[in-house]
Design a protein around this nucleic acid. Structure first.
Lengths: 196, 196
DNA sequence: GTTTTTTCTGAACGTACGTTCAGATAACCT
DNA sequence: AGGTTATCTGAACGTACGTTCAGAAAAAAC
């Protein structure tokens, strides 16, 4: 046997990333073998190496893709002018975006330690760029007196942790819609940074 | 060779758990081998099986120990009577307790998927018991009109996620003491659930 | 229809894994 | 001092891992 009928890199490539994302999210990077990924795609393990130089690069590619998609989606948004509306927009965007791709969210903060130092640094830079956008909103709000937070850096990390946490419990079949979840969280975010 | 001079289960047993906790936290359960743990202890891999029936039980033991310690530390506390003071106590307790054992915190919510279904269920029950304590505080506060949260279940998960998040960034050598961090977070928690 | 390129197979490489166990030595007990 | 128990070694088991690569077949180009 050799090349199989119907084989195309345009199909196999995305399929590998799809299967890998699913398996990495469900069982963890270290617990998933190249043979398991290949089996999910319907191919032999050796074929994967036409698409990635090694296993870790496959993980890194998925993470980078996720972070760049996050930043692009955020950049494509039209943001309001006053800090309060900006914060609401950020809150709702973050929740909706993260709930749409739970697997990518999961691996992007669970599998960081499986990255080489260089790759880790690249992902952290992207993450930092995203978090800085939230901190800038908080800083502007504090500057004009509409927010009251003792430490914008820590508030940023606290809010991000709270918002990202929805991924751990939200289920589409549950009792709440994404919009309802957004509203509940926005209520808490708004009050948490409000002037006393 | 055989039994080594100075060998004692009272020393080796805790040492194994200590090394395993450290390695699991730093590299992840699946990426750590029994031989690496043994090497850290200064023993051959076979010796570990005098202390655990298998690798997964070692992980489970660490997690159960962590959750039971958390519940015991909480139960040993004298809690105030009014919901606001109770919430402050919970907030400060949670942060301080978690910052004192970052490795155990880390593995206890990162390595859940490496547990068998039964063991997973046991840990989840303990975790649920802890989270329920926070939810009860919120419910009481809502009942007496001192808190305003649209959904106590979600508020509980949101607050826990926010508070537990400190472990991801806090470093003892950093610019803030634990008490300062407690206070900053308590400020946000208090406002987030306050009546509007 | 022929040649070139793309894609995959299947076997192999060396290494590492979790776990078991017979046997050996140290520690403890009387 | 001698017997018993606790603890560890060292080797072995079968299995799985990530990765490489020559060769074969399908697809694309001409």
């Amino acid at each position: 046997m050799a090349r199989t009928t119907g084989s195309h890199s345009d199909i196999t490539g995305p399929r590998i990333r799809e299967v890998a994302l699913d398996l990495f999210a469900r069982r963890g990077f270290a617990a998933v073998s190249m043979r398991q990924i290949a089996s999910g795609v319907g191919v032999q393990a050796g074929a994967l190496y036409n698409y990635t130089p090694d296993k870790q690069s496959l993980l890194f590619g998925l993470m980078r893709e996720h972070m760049e998609e996050l930043l692009a989606a955020r950049a494509a948004r039209e943001v309001p002018d006053d800090p309060l509306a900006e914060l609401e927009d950020f809150t709702r965007f973050h929740i909706a975006h993260h709930l749409e791709r739970p697997d990518a969210v999961f691996i992007s903060y669970m599998e960081l330690r499986n990255l080489s130092p260089e790759n880790f640094g690249l992902i952290e830079t992207l993450r930092r760029a995203y978090e800085d956008q939230l901190e800038e909103i908080l800083k502007r709000g504090v500057a004009v007196g509409v927010f009251d937070v003792p430490d914008t850096k820590i508030a940023t990390l606290a809010l991000i942790a709270m918002l990202t946490g929805v991924s751990t419990w939200y289920r589409p079949a549950g009792r709440l819609s994404v919009q309802q979840v957004e509203t509940i969280y926005w209520d808490m975010v708004r009050k948490a940074v409000a002037t006393a």
